[in-house]
Amino acid sequence: MNMKKNQLNKKYNKYVKDISPKPNYLANSIKAFVTGGLVCVFGFAIQKLIISRGIDKETAGTIVIILLVCLSQLLTGFGVYDKLAKYAGAGLIVPITGFANSVVAPAMEYKREGIVLGVGAKLFSLAGPVLVCGYSAAVVIGIIYTLIY
């Protein structure tokens, strides 16, 4: 009985996959490529500008990240970022601006639930996993590197 049900479900899933409209892979990829590329070029241009003022490359890189984060969060606040990302897809999700957006979007949404358990907690609902996994990866790498070094 269960085996038969499983087979039926598999058959149905395949049928659904066949009749469901597919995303337009090519168009989506081109949009993501161009927007993502432009975000990086924009950051690079600012970085060059900062370096030309006599600031070292590493610090300039950090300043660029902070600027992009703030810009993205402001655009999210004004309700623009999600519209841009709907068009650009991964072009605006994968850059650090997408991370910044995922910090502020759920926080804004939970304003009515208070500034501690609403905004404060939800700030990390999407970004939390990124930080948890990223930090864990870094610490594991750090420990392994200590052992080898």
């Binding site: 892979y25 990829s29 993501a32 490529f33 993502g36 991964a90 999700i93 994968v94």
Partner: peptide
């Protein structure tokens, strides 16, 4: 810069 950033984003797009 443009190409590298673009390619990384395309990988993300295809994944999604």
């Amino acid at each position: 810069v443009f190409i590298t950033g673009g390619i990384i984003c395309v990988i993300g797009q295809l994944l999604m």
